[in-house]
């Protein structure tokens, strides 16, 4: 007799647990306000990344098209993946030959966004930007030259 009671108890407790489980999903279908989907390209205007988000390395330029990079290669050394390549050149400032950058080459395809290059920079020339849409149609487009054409080093940066 006991086993028969247990048998029915089992059925009822089983059914009860199933109904309870269904109540959880049932709660969400009756509360459409709790939908968490974000429709990405449509909400672009309101979408804001957190300021510390590491998207890609950029070389800061001011309004005079001047940057702070001296070409010291500290970031190149700090980078674990060989993402940054500094091609230096010699320029003349006040009659002295000084090392400067010719091209600041940045291989986005190799970057792991670890951010080690940022604190390595002695002049705070590079920062991490918040951009996150890096998809391009051609891999070669991922190799970027960060210093803008015609830009030069800011005065007083050594």
């Amino acid at each position: 007799m006991k086993s028969i009671i247990n048998y029915f108890k089992e059925i009822f407790s089983g059914l009860k647990s199933l109904v309870k489980g269904m109540s959880v999903t049932g709660h969400y279908i009756t509360h459409p306000k709790e939908i968490i989907t974000q429709q990405y390209p449509e909400n672009k205007a309101t979408l804001k990344m957190f300021e510390r988000f590491r998207g890609e390395v950029v070389l800061l330029h001011d309004e005079n098209n001047e940057h702070k990079c001296t070409g010291c290669s500290a970031c190149e050394v700090a980078c674990p993946n060989g993402t940054i390549e500094i091609i230096p050149k010699r320029i003349e400032i006040d009659g002295r030959k000084v090392k400067a950058i010719d091209q600041f080459v940045y291989h986005l395809q190799m970057c792991t966004m670890c951010g080690l290059c940022i604190p390595a920079c002695p002049t705070d020339a590079i920062v991490m930007a918040n951009t996150f849409e890096h998809a391009v149609f051609d891999r070669s487009k991922l190799t970027k030259i960060l210093n803008k054409p015609g830009s030069k080093i800011m005065d007083g940066i050594k």
Binding site: F50, R52, F53, R54, M113, C114, G115, P119
Partner: peptide
Amino acid sequence: FEETCGARLTMNYNIPGGLFFDIH
């Protein structure tokens, strides 16, 4: 994580001797 460490998954927030940044 994203707000404090700067990334969602591979955060790299620790450095030998401390942290990358202070908390947000």
